[in-house]
Design a protein around this nucleic acid. Sequence first.
DNA 1: ACCCTGATTGCAAGCGTTTGCAAAAAATGG
DNA 2: CCATTTTTTGCAAACGCTTGCAATCAGGGT
Lengths: 345, 345
Amino acid sequence: MRERDEGAPAGRRVTAMDVARAAGVSVSAVSRAFTPGASVSARTRARVMAAAAKLDYMPNALARGLMTQRSNLIGIILTNFKNPLYLSVLDHFTHAIQQRGLRALVFNISRGGDLTEAARQILQYSVDGLIVSAGAISPLLAGQCARRQIPVVAFARNPRSKDIDVVCADNVAGGRMAARLLIERGYRRIGYLGGSAQASTSQDRGKGLVGELEDAGLSLHCSVHASEYSYEAGRVAARALLSMDEPPDALFCANDVLAFGALDVARHRFGLSVPGQLGIVGFDDIGLAEADSFSLTTVRQPIEEMVRETIALMMRRMEDPRLEPETRLLSCSLVERGTVRGPRL
Amino acid sequence: MRERDEGAPAGRRVTAMDVARAAGVSVSAVSRAFTPGASVSARTRARVMAAAAKLDYMPNALARGLMTQRSNLIGIILTNFKNPLYLSVLDHFTHAIQQRGLRALVFNISRGGDLTEAARQILQYSVDGLIVSAGAISPLLAGQCARRQIPVVAFARNPRSKDIDVVCADNVAGGRMAARLLIERGYRRIGYLGGSAQASTSQDRGKGLVGELEDAGLSLHCSVHASEYSYEAGRVAARALLSMDEPPDALFCANDVLAFGALDVARHRFGLSVPGQLGIVGFDDIGLAEADSFSLTTVRQPIEEMVRETIALMMRRMEDPRLEPETRLLSCSLVERGTVRGPRL
DNA sequence: ACCCTGATTGCAAGCGTTTGCAAAAAATGG
DNA sequence: CCATTTTTTGCAAACGCTTGCAATCAGGGT
């Protein structure tokens, strides 16, 4: 009985050494054959590759990572698994990451996991970078990453920290755009349907709204914070606002899903005509915002661009870890559809 | 100038050896302190933990994985980044995986990546398991995993292979449920708005529909395959069906997003009343199906249960790799809302 | 044919852990 | 208090790869 044969016996895992033996070269040669710019002749590389193929060998990324100090892993920490926007965020991130020969290690802290703990878990895999789209990044966490020279970038959340890279939509400006549109179209009793009170995104969007209203000599008519970023939460929040004594004639919602809830409650429960009696503006521009049923006028976050910037920032810092942290606010754009009335002609 | 001090100099990464030195023990002790059931006294463990905390040490998962042959990584390969259902799938998977002290390595092949190639990439990280929710799993791939003793399970896709574990909704039965409901409620010209023709899910749902129709002495009135699982594709497909000479009076759609498209086209472009003139049944029961605007009657996939089964199957096979592959079809349930008319009283 | 240069190669020392084994220490029993 | 059993401990050998270094080789010029 032989110890190991070519072919496919369910045996010991095949290592560079097996390939080396089969190809009649050293392990170093095998390693070099699998390393793009390495010093190895075409002939041996071919030999090695042939042997590798026959044995169904592939380099062990763990061992390689251990040795090179580069795991080729990028950690992604996410909270928001309710907002469809984040499916597309993940789509773009994983795609961009793979394009660069990296892999995505994703961590979910939506069920009340602790961010710092999550980061610890992920750091154990010595990721080459960390993308965090979740509440505040503690200085502790930032420190841990800095010490290990691991680039972290806060995505679509603005920790307002000068110690960290952040890529985020310009939510304040976005809020202003929404306000300007509503004012321009003749709405006067404008309310804010925000997300959770601590979320920087919700705060900033509201801030922008209020700022622009005040610039126009108006003031915020009413506001409420939804318990979470979900359709249902949007409904209950909107119901509260619309049953006030003097209800708003327009609502700016902190995100599209909330807006859907508000829209449905307004139309189907309060019998209001939208945009006639109530104007609604959302935020994000998720896919379904353009569905006829909603046809939601909304502020679009440039997700793809944000992802691109995030990766770029990360790569840049991987090259030179002592760069000054940067905050990049990308501009949103207004997508007009059917929930805000047209300009008076 | 000292080589390394406690505190937080941005220096060499801190290893078990540093902790050992600081705690006055051997590296083995450190390792054992961090390994749950290991043979180590409470006193030394405490010492080690204290030193570790002071130095901000955490074990290197790569090295550990290399040594133990268990990376604690689970690979997830996904195609469908357009269907919101998959955000919740990811939510549940990442959560379940983390619960068990594992991490999720996710790979996106929606942009036309090759599954077998993706798997190769992921296998390099010597994942402890692989979840594949994408087209057909080639025997080649299955073989590679089997040889390496890596459990693979096909999720929400039925490769109809006896060589692999699969967890899937019972799509045929689901199709039948939809058909039965429509027939019962008096619809007679029932059409199928399928997804891509190769997808096992779309095939099976259609098969169920047709089967039940034939059992009732009816036949499929018409059918079409949408180009992809998206709202827009649903619209164009529905438009085609509804502009036939004798249009269907009910549509079973291969998934909710397609159904949304169909619903909107029917109501807003064809001016049809739903469910009066046209009945619509979707599949999945994604969050927004319950929105007032859609209030979609649909066949619910038991996602949470499916995820649970998938993980269970995987763990089981990790214990005993020579188990017979199993195919688990989980039953769907009908969620009646407003797009199919009520029973005649 | 000979020396010099630059491209390939193999050796061996790591990377940061875990773990079998045997020695040391602590606990137990008489 | 000693012999015996049970815990704890450290040593050193892996795990599968990369890489600096020195040795080897091929080629070019004279």
